[in-house]
Design a protein around this nucleic acid. Structure first.
Length: 439
RNA sequence: GGAGAGAUGGCAGAGUGGUCGAAUGCACCGGUCUUGAAAACCGGCGUACUUAACGGUACCGGGGGUUCGAAUCCCUCUCUCUCCGCCA
């Protein structure tokens, strides 16, 4: 959530930022926050004063009793007792204001950085880079890519290739669990493991510390990274124990740093984690979710950074380079988008999406989102560091990105590298696969 | 799952109703001494909210209660440890 300090000190900048994010009723929302905050402060100052008085009076009683001045002691007792009611009311007022303030702040998104483009939907995103031409997979051509000659053959979508080579069984997943829970088999399963190991090894080479976190989290963690309260319906919930299946490793990994004060010298913290991710994806339907395009359970390697404010932009850049490096090594056709204000996620200050091209589906598939959350997430998490110069605690910046999510990468590999003899394995994966062809 | 014990500052560990935000030790930071270091000595050393400031308030695992007053008493939840049971 946004900090009160920012809202009160830079009100106009916040409002225009929210408008850039296409947040409706920004001015009213901010005015409401400030009004509630005023109420809260008034209740607090008054309560503090009353408590201070009561405390001083109550402290006298002990002495009076020892001196045997029972009557005086009793008089003060009555006096303090009388103050209790007022204090209880103030306490309640303060608590109510705090709660209302918090609830309101949770409904207000992060404000975008200056370099975030104006715009309201996906069409307004900037394509900052694309290697499509180099890959020579034109939208209309059919497999003229040198490394992948499928001339004259219609490209098959990955779900058909999955069946042809017996790599993924979607129907079996339905039998065991339900739609969106595929069963990977044989080389299909091995490809999963190969990608997981490849991504983790690459992350390690880039200096990330591998974390293996729990895949179920408590409500406090869900709240810490912002899945709760608003996106409750997107997570699987174990009611009996009140635990949630994680939608991304971001949740458990970032929550490591909840309520933590870090040393400046330890920043930036660079963690990576492979986990299964679980998403209910309520409201999804149709061909958009066909095959591997959208699953309820999938594998993902996430990179997470905690950094000091003045270095987070540099961190973000390094993360983008890391993810781009992965796509290059996998030889996939990709493009990088800088998301516009209206299309960027609720919590991000700036976000880049990586997409790979699916020749068979004739569309781009999002495989990674690399965001800087500035202090937005850290404020909710209470993740701070001690500034070595001022000796004061300050909010960290948090960043994360997928590096990478498997299903669409698998779809893209299958569709783009299909040949008449099978599916070519990109060179970087051959050591992990133990073969250069899936057939 | 059953029985018992416990949860105090970065760590260790006192504190069982009043002057306790909390002794003491260690760690850490600053200083004196020293060519330098160690030792010794002196000083500092939690977080948040609030106030223009002085200062004030809250927090001793979480929540609630008793009391004029709670780290201390009561209830409840969570977690940890020991024993038993079950089990990868």
């Amino acid at each position: 959530m946004l900090t009160l300090k920012m809202i009160t000190e830079e009100t106009e900048r916040v409002i225009s930022g929210l408008e850039k994010k296409r947040f409706k009723g920004a001015r009213e929302a901010i005015a409401e926050v400030m009004a509630i905050d005023k109420e809260r402060r008034e209740a607090q100052t008054q309560l503090d004063r009353n408590l201070s008085d009561a405390k001083k009076l109550a402290a006298e009683i002990g002495g009076l009793m020892k001196q045997g001045k029972k009557d005086e002691a009793e008089a003060i007792k009555a006096q303090v007792a009388a103050m209790k009611e007022t204090n209880a009311a103030l306490e309640q007022k303060k608590a109510a204001a705090e709660q209302a303030l918090n609830a309101k702040l949770c409904t207000i998104p992060n404000i975008p950085y200056d370099e975030v483009p104006e715009g309201s939907c996906a069409d307004d995103n900037w394509v900052v880079k694309s290697n499509l031409k180099e890959c020579r997979i034109g939208v209309d051509t059919v497999g003229n890519w040198d490394a992948n000659p499928v001339v004259g053959t219609a490209r098959l979508p990955h779900w058909e290739l999955a069946r042809k080579y017996d790599l993924i069984d979607f129907d079996l997943g339905v039998k065991i669990t339900g739609a969106g829970f595929p069963v990977y088999k044989g080389l299909g399963a091995r490809l999963q493991r190969a990608l997981i190991n490849f991504f983790l090894d690459e992350a390690r080479k880039s200096g990330y510390t591998e974390i293996m976190p729990p895949t179920v989290v408590n409500a406090a963690s869900g709240y810490g990274t912002g899945q709760l309260p608003d996106k409750e319906g997107q997570m699987y919930h174990c009611e009996m124990d009140d635990l949630y299946l994680i939608p991304t490793a971001e949740v458990p990994v970032t929550n490591i740093y909840r309520d933590v004060i870090l040393d400046e010298k330890d920043l930036p913290i660079k963690n990576c984690a492979y986990t299964q991710c679980f998403r209910r994806e309520a409201g999804s339907y149709g061909k958009e979710v066909r095959g591997l395009n959208r699953l309820h359970e999938f594998s993902k390697i996430e990179i997470v950074r905690i950094d000091k404010p003045e270095h987070s932009a540099e961190s973000h850049k390094e993360m983008l380079e890391h993810v781009e490096g992965l796509l290059k090594k996998l030889e996939l056709p990709y493009r990088i988008l800088r998301l516009c204000g209206g299309d960027a996620s609720f919590t991000s200050a700036i976000c880049y999406d990586f997409e790979v091209y699916s020749e068979a589906q004739k569309r781009w598939l999002e495989v990674s989102s690399v965001s800087n959350f500035d202090t937005y997430q850290a404020n909710r998490l209470k993740c701070r560091y001690r500034n070595s110069e001022t000796k004061k605690t300050e909010l960290c910046h948090t960043l994360n990105g997928s590096a990478l999510a498997l299903p669409r990468i698998v779809a893209s590999i299958m569709e783009n590298f299909q040949t008449e003899d099978g599916i070519r394995v990109p060179a970087a994966l051959v050591p992990y696969m133990g073969c250069d062809m899936i057939k």
